[in-house]
Simulated assay, not measured.
Amino acid sequence: MTYVIIHALAPIFVIMLLGFYAGKAKMVDNKNVSLLNIFVMDFALPAALFSATVQTPWSGIVQQSPLIVVLVLGMWITYAAIYFICTKVFKKTPQDAAVLTLTVALPNYAALGLPILGSVLGESSSTSLSVAVAIACGSVLMTPFCLLILEREKARESGAIQGSTLTMLPVLMWRSVKKPIVWGPLLGVVLSAIGIHMPEMVLASIKPLGLSATASALFLTGVILSARKLQINTCVVLSSVTKLLIQPFIAWGIVLAMGLHGDVAVTAILMIALSAGFFGIVFGNRFGVQSPDAEATLLISSVLCIITLPLFIALTAGI
């Protein structure tokens, strides 16, 4: 099992390392990656998320509702707790806290979900559906929180909008929803819900973009990391422990409270137990927000999940 996890993690580290090398060697300007970020955030990732959601049958999504509840609650509880601690205890700015919080709360479903789940439960249409649902939950029900905070602080700094968050909410929601990274997967869910099937030619046309999404996002993350120095502090340690241990046990508690068992319970816990994802760092870079703690948490959780994932795989074997 450890080999399977290392095998799944290898592409992540290799692609990030290539991006890191490109930045350090000045092959890519690691101080200004706006063009690469636009490609990732406005084209590649939206295309991948749209393809994943629009091809997920609505009946399958409904059947996966217990999984959705566990994943969403596990992410939301973690997001609220970490954001509160970051802003109140560690006195981080809302932007920095939002980026770090999304990094911790949103697991790396896209890169690790299918390899890990397939190795434990077997590769099947049901496993693929579970991963697709997890990706949809993260993109539709998690990323808007981070975007709202980033948009709010950007608007306040520019003086474009004044007032409380509540009064700003309609404008902020519109600014977030109109971004491709949000409306792409949301449109896919809506089309799936009303039973509209995309023509094969359309899906084939955007498939190359979707296939490049994870690789380009990881490469971009590596480039961003090349401009920073790895810093390990109390916040990073707490974030890493929360991601790798506390959040999976939160999910486990929700599973027990709902009385779930079998493959659904195992899937919910293992998906939450995956290492931190790259969304937060990429989002932050788009808004000019640097979060060294988020970057350190991403690296540490990606390495240490080699230890924690086998632990949760063993613990969930008897569920």
Rank of each mutant, 00 (worst) to 15 (best):
L187D: 05
T308D: 02
M16D: 02
S301Y: 01
T127V: 10
L311H: 05
V177W: 09
T267W: 00
V202W: 12
P248E: 10
K154G: 10
I161R: 10
A317Y: 12
P292W: 04
P11H: 05
A98Q: 03
L220Q: 02
L102C: 03
A268M: 03
G122W: 02
A97Q: 04
G74E: 01
P57A: 00
V182N: 04
L67K: 06
A132L: 15
D293G: 02
W174Y: 14
L117A: 06
T221Y: 15
S212P: 07
L172F: 01
I196P: 06
T143I: 15
L230T: 12
T242W: 08
L45G: 05
K243C: 06
L311C: 11
C305A: 07
E200Q: 15
I281D: 08
T56E: 13
F249D: 06
G210P: 06
L238C: 10
M168Y: 11
K26I: 01
I306L: 11
A47G: 00
Q247M: 10
P292A: 13
A80P: 01
T214Q: 00
I161P: 04
Y109M: 09
G280H: 14
I300T: 05
I250G: 08
A111W: 12
K91D: 06
I181M: 15
Y109W: 06
V241L: 07
P144H: 02
A136D: 04
N285Y: 02
F39D: 13
V190L: 13
S164G: 07
L18H: 08
T143Q: 12
L304G: 08
C305F: 07
Q64V: 07
L36N: 07
T56L: 15
L117S: 03
V223L: 03
L315Q: 10
W252P: 01
A276Y: 08
T56I: 11
A204H: 06
E153W: 03
I12Q: 03
V33L: 04
V62Q: 14
A25S: 08
R156K: 14
S34D: 11
D263K: 13
G195N: 03
E123Q: 12
F84W: 09
S126V: 14
I135V: 11
V28W: 04
L141P: 00
T56C: 11
E123S: 09
F283W: 09
M16W: 05
A204N: 05
L299Y: 11
F13A: 12
A217L: 09
Q247I: 02
A217P: 03
L191D: 04
A160E: 15
A265Q: 01
R152Y: 05
